[in-house]
Deep mutational scan, measured.
Amino acid sequence: QGDIVVALYPYDGIHPDDLSFKKGEKMKVLEEHGEWWKAKSLLTKKEGFIPSNYVAKLN
């Protein structure tokens, strides 16, 4: 089961498979690959890669 993270900063995706998000948006982490994680937005239901240093895990 994936962790839920919250965006600390907004992110505008650079690549087509990036997931753009707004500050405060919550996402479910699907896979962790070093600095880039695959996640699904709980708001938009879209999936893509996010920079892990832009988010914090919720406990």
Rank of each mutant, 00 (worst) to 15 (best):
Q1K: 13
Q1I: 15
Q1A: 14
G2F: 11
D3F: 15
D3A: 14
D3G: 11
I4C: 07
I4S: 04
V5R: 02
V6W: 07
V6C: 09
L8K: 07
L8G: 02
Y9P: 00
P10Q: 13
P10R: 13
Y11T: 01
Y11M: 03
Y11I: 03
Y11P: 00
D12P: 10
D12F: 13
D12H: 14
G13Q: 07
G13V: 04
G13H: 03
I14L: 11
H15Y: 11
H15G: 14
H15I: 05
P16C: 11
P16D: 09
D17S: 11
D17W: 15
D17M: 12
D17C: 14
D18T: 14
D18Q: 15
D18I: 08
L19D: 01
S20Q: 06
S20C: 08
F21V: 06
F21S: 00
K22Q: 11
K22W: 05
K22R: 13
K23E: 07
K23H: 06
K23I: 09
G24S: 04
E25A: 03
K26I: 15
K28S: 08
K28L: 15
K28H: 09
V29F: 04
V29A: 03
L30G: 03
L30A: 03
L30W: 05
E31Y: 09
E31S: 12
E31K: 08
E31P: 00
E32M: 15
H33P: 04
H33D: 09
H33Y: 12
G34A: 06
E35W: 13
E35V: 13
E35H: 15
E35Q: 12
W36S: 07
W37Q: 07
W37D: 02
K38V: 11
K38D: 02
A39Y: 01
A39K: 00
K40R: 14
K40S: 09
S41N: 06
S41G: 02
L42I: 07
L43V: 11
L43P: 02
T44K: 02
K45R: 12
K45T: 09
K46R: 11
E47G: 04
E47K: 08
E47T: 14
E47Y: 06
E47D: 06
G48P: 01
G48Q: 00
G48F: 01
G48R: 00
F49P: 01
I50Q: 01
P51V: 02
P51F: 04
S52C: 12
S52R: 15
N53W: 15
Y54P: 00
Y54S: 05
Y54I: 07
Y54G: 03
Y54A: 08
V55W: 02
V55T: 05
A56D: 07
A56Q: 13
K57G: 06
K57Q: 08
K57H: 11
N59F: 11
N59V: 12
N59T: 13
